[in-house]
Design a binder for these strands. Structure first.
Length: 458
RNA sequence: GGAGGGGUGGCCGAGUGGUUGAAGGCGGCAGUCUUGAAAACUGUUAGGCGCGCAAGUGUCUCGGGGGUUCGAAUCCCUCCCCCUCCGCCA
């Protein structure tokens, strides 16, 4: 059973936009109580994020909802009393009289219920637009430039030749085929060939297994999901424009494994003893990138389809802070293991994601293009997604339930790690060395060599 | 794709319009008994939303939503999910 009022496709689409009565459980998103009780804090949060959301409209709808609710519930209490009396009444005339009275009450209840449904639908639509609250540790900033470098690990490799960007290396090694891919599928598409395809496969397996060793359980997940899943993790309703959708079946293609991972325990009450749950999954990621038209068009830095390995945790509220540290440290270890130069950025209030309260980005140095590539964003979402997905836990037998905290992070986006590896490990002769940790996954191959003139007509 | 059968509380399972939020059983918890345990017995055992300082109280939930009715787990519509047979298929 789903507790997100009004968000079922059945209620949203099949039933012409009607929603159920009653705000249940998480009420999807930010706690309405918080908006009700501390609207100024909410406004301050929105200000820090550099965004807006309809605080006043929420307050109005919320007040209206509770007024109607009080009235209609009194009427229903009367109705329930009368219903019992009718059931017991032996005398026919008495029965008729009671039923006559109730007929009138029923009409009033219907009218109020209808109004209530409308108000709740509006309230839900409004509150859905609010981003997560910010963690106290998230610094205030006004844009990407205000993200703070927490630490930088490794020195950029020094070259005694002019390093090339990954698209040139990939094309000349015939392991990256952009033209052929775009010919069939449009811009921002690519194909990997031969050792390129093997290298990506090796990376994915390496990362998944490293995650497993660190205690993250593997999952294979749906890559097509319903609207509710997109709502749960926060992609909908605000970021519909960035999602691919199958119009006929009404499925969405996942933009990240975070989406199906969040929905794994939807509507569940977990036993506190099982937390934290550590999960990892590899999925393709599909993104329309409508918002970034014209940006990062070269190479495979920003594409419509790429592979990503994700790490994810469901924790108690007390456990999420250390879980975030743990995930960052783990992901850093993976980058170090690949021999890449990287830095850790703390995202400021204006650059942090919709669902996140506290986030750190991992960026690797790509010496060919001479830029930092974001390969991971690791976030503590607190109870924001748990509310939307209605995921709770019971600390102890007999205790009442609370929402879990969720954390997600990439480990990593393959295209960018792939690009960084090509650029970091390139040689003057055009070949690319394979990082030590991946060699055994590529048949002990130690480098990808430039193709010889013969036998390369295709 | 065609035809049919199902979805009730942690689990099993009753219940076809009126004290049914829901019998009974199992499991869980507490207690009695016992040196202790088991057995037996007794009690207890869902989650939202609203009002309330609280105690408490009202309301909603029998896959989801809507409808009929004074009143729905029970009748109708619709969606989702599970199962069986046929067809197709990696």
């Amino acid at each position: 059973m789903c507790g997100c009022w009004g968000w079922h496709r059945s209620s949203e689409r099949r039933s012409q936009g009607k929603v159920s009565l009653g705000l249940s459980r998480g009420a999807g998103m930010l706690s309405i109580q918080w908006i009700r009780e501390a609207p100024d804090e909410v406004r301050a949060m929105l200000e820090r994020r550099g965004t807006t959301a309809p605080v006043d409209a929420v307050l109005e709808r919320d007040a209206e909802r509770r007024t109607i609710l009080t009235e209609v519930e009194h009427l229903k209490a009367d109705r329930n009393q009368a219903g019992k009396a009718i059931g017991k009444a032996k005398d026919q005339a008495e029965r008729e009289s009671l039923i006559g009275t109730q007929r009138e009450v029923a009409g009033r209840i219907d009218a109020l219920d209808e109004r209530l449904r409308a108000v709740e639908a509006e309230l839900h639509a409004l509150v859905s637009q609010f981003p997560n609250r910010l963690h106290a540790d998230t610094p205030t900033g006004s844009g990407e430039a205000d993200n703070q470098v927490v630490r930088s690990i490794g020195l950029p490799r020094a070259f005694d030749f002019e390093p090339k960007p990954h698209w040139e290396i990939g094309e000349s090694l015939r392991i990256l085929e952009i033209e052929r891919a775009t010919a069939m599928a449009g811009s921002r598409m690519f194909a990997l060939r031969g050792q390129g395809a093997r290298l990506q496969r090796a990376l994915i397996n390496h990362l998944l297994e490293q995650n497993e060793e660190a205690g993250y359980e593997s999952w294979y997940l749906p890559n097509l999901v319903r609207e509710e899943a997109m709502f749960a993790s926060g992609q909908l309703p605000k970021f519909r424009d960035n999602l691919y959708r199958d119009a006929e079946e009404d499925y969405f293609l996942v933009p990240t494994a975070e989406v199906p991972l969040t929905s794994l325990h939807r509507d569940e009450i977990l036993d506190g003893a099982v937390l934290p749950l550590r999960y990892t999954a590899h999925t393709p990621c599909f993104r329309r990138e409508k918002m970034s038209a014209g940006r990062d068009v070269r190479g495979i830095k920003r594409v419509h389809q790429f592979e990503k390995v994700e790490i994810y945790q469901f924790t108690t509220p007390e456990g999420s802070a250390s879980a975030l540290e743990e995930m960052i440290a783990h992901a850093e270890g993976l980058l170090a293991g690949l021999g890449l130069t990287y830095r850790v950025l703390q995202l400021c209030s204006a650059d942090i994601g919709f669902s996140a309260a506290l986030s750190f980005d991992l960026e690797v140095w790509a010496p060919g293009a001479a830029e930092w590539l974001e390969v991971s964003s690791i976030s503590n979402c607190l109870d924001f997604q748990a509310r939307r997905a209605n995921i709770r836990y019971r600390p102890e037998e007999g205790k009442s339930t609370s929402f879990v905290h969720t954390l997600n992070g990439s480990s990593f986006g393959m295209t960018r790690v792939f690009a960084a590896i090509l650029e970091t490990y390139q040689r003057q002769d055009g070949g690319v060395d394979i990082p030590d940790v991946l060699q055994h996954r590529m048949g002990r191959l130690m480098q990808i060599e430039a193709p010889t003139a013969a036998g390369t007509s295709a």
